[in-house]
Amino acid sequence: MVENHPSQASKFKCEVKNLNFYYGSVRVLKDINLSVFSHQVTALIGPSGCGKTTLLRCFNRMHDLYPGNRYTGEIELDKINILAPWIDPIEVRMRIGMVFQKPNPFPKSIYENVAYGLRVRGQSQRSAIDETVEQALRNAALWDEVKDRLYDLAFNLSGGQQQRLCIARALATNPEMILFDEPTSALDPIATASIEELITQLKEKVTILIVTHSMQQAARISDRTAFMYLGEIIEFDRTQTIFSDPTHRKTQDYVNGRFG
């Protein structure tokens, strides 16, 4: 396995193969096939309830936290199936970060929020943590705003700052991929713009998979877009193609705002 190290040259970071997902006996995702390109932004769009968030949460096995959820099929991260029962979900989450819909900082200091992922990984050397925290906050474009109050409670930040803090928290642990679950739906337009800008910058460092409720956002920031409907991927292509020249009728209707 050691030989099979993740090559930065590989085209696909992640490949989903025939993924099905069940809540109890309800089949929520149907035969999903999707290739997430390395160092690109891949967007999942579709009407609410189409399963895009459910699909996103398969990538870091969040569904394992709740009873009654079941997967079949595979998600390969660098050719290793991370849905296999023998794979430790915690390791998957250490390699794939996540940013949630509502900013959810811990009620601790800004510094501790960013440092938490490092502490979980057993890092205890103060100077190393300091350095990583600063780097993560810089990468999340938050450093200048918070450098004088690193030990303030994170709850005192504005909504947009809290969300960037959550991004910094995910970045601090140096993940290979970050999942974004409608990261701007709880934010105002200015904060949204700054997060979008941040996401496009981040793709140099990490692979990004984003669920978004807004087609404009997908068009602005993503390289590839998958359109989902009723638990299936209807169409997956370059973002430009999806929005200007989709193959399927459903996709066309959706991106033209005829339903959803």
């Binding site: 989450r93 949630f100 811990f106 992922g117 979980v120």
Partner: peptide
């Protein structure tokens, strides 16, 4: 809980 788990706790 989800935030902590997503960080690998």
């Amino acid at each position: 809980r989800e935030a902590a788990c997503a960080l690998g706790a």
